[in-house]
């Protein structure tokens, strides 16, 4: 008992007051990018050629954040003259087309679906399905339940049964072997229901695009309401997206 009390005292109170108070992430964190269109076209070409995800379109000066894994290759090669990743973690999309960005990212609060917000905003229950991938997105979603983030204080919960859920949060590139289980879980959720695509794999196949072992992209199988980019997205990005879209 003494040990419990001593540990409790030592641990103190750890829960963050985000979103009321801002949190700053380390300098090397690669978040929302700034794109400099007036950059030397040679540098843009070089960035595009070396991008492992082929996410950069040099003609339009855009970057596809659905494909991007935020590895930082373009920033390193172009010495930040074309793309610079800021440590702003607050970005997510309601339209897949908006993921291809010239630096302008629409305000998620304004893009949110108002009837859904009214319906689910106070209490949101989500079912998570891992449809392939590397378990990093799952791990950084799970971490929202630890004391620092304490997701339930915000009225959001991950539930065990799809019957109890208001929506589906999908990670992974939808492998051929998970397609059926994913669709069955979706069917088991009562309507109206929302679908959230989390991480580069769910948005575009991520590192595994073009593999014959993954099936069609998630948004061609189901209608996706919210796209959260990253590999994996920082837990705060996930938290921001859920709060901006539903709260």
């Amino acid at each position: 008992m003494i040990k419990c009390l001593r540990n409790r005292w030592e641990q103190g109170y750890r829960t963050s007051s985000y979103p009321k108070e801002k949190i700053s992430l380390p300098e090397r964190y690669r978040g929302k990018p700034v794109i400099k269109k007036d950059c030397d076209p040679k540098i843009i070409e070089d960035c595009a050629m070396n991008c492992p995800q082929e996410a950069i379109h040099p003609d339009q000066c855009t970057i596809d954040l659905g494909r991007c894994v935020f590895c930082g290759t373009c920033e390193r090669i172009g010495k930040g003259q074309f793309v610079e990743f800021t440590n702003d973690f607050e970005f997510a999309f309601t339209q897949k087309k908006d993921c291809i960005t010239d630096g302008h990212i629409p305000d998620l609060h304004q893009d949110a679906n108002m009837p859904i917000k009214k319906l689910l905003g106070k209490s949101l229950q989500l079912r998570q399905v891992s449809a392939g991938g590397c378990n990093a997105c799952e791990a950084d979603t799970n971490v929202l339940n630890t004391p620092f983030f304490d997701l339930s204080r915000l009225g959001i919960q991950f539930v065990a049964s799809p019957r109890h859920a208001d929506g589906l949060l999908v990670t992974g590139p939808v492998t051929r072997n998970m397609k059926m289980a994913l669709l069955q879980t979706y069917d088991a959720i009562p309507s109206p229901k929302i679908v959230i695509a989390l991480g580069s794999c769910a948005l575009s196949g991520g590192p595994f695009r073009d593999s014959p072992e993954i099936s069609e992209s998630l948004d061609s199988l189901l209608q996706v309401d919210l796209f959260i980019p990253g590999c994996p997205p920082h837990p705060l990005t996930i938290l921001y997206a859920l709060l901006a879209y539903f709260k």
């Binding site: 070396n50 991008c51 492992p52 995800q53 894994v69 590895c71 891992s130 392939g132 991938g133 992974g172 590139p173 492998t175 051929r176 072997n177 998970m178 289980a181 590192p207 595994f208 073009d210 593999s211 014959p212 072992e213 993954i214």
Partner: peptide, 20 residues
């Protein structure tokens, strides 16, 4: 269930994709 064909991709994909 999570089979993504990693070993085959490592043979077919261009070098720049491999670390990812």
């Amino acid at each position: 269930y999570q089979h993504r064909g990693v070993e085959q991709l490592m043979v077919k994909a261009p070098l720049k994709r491999l670390p990812i």
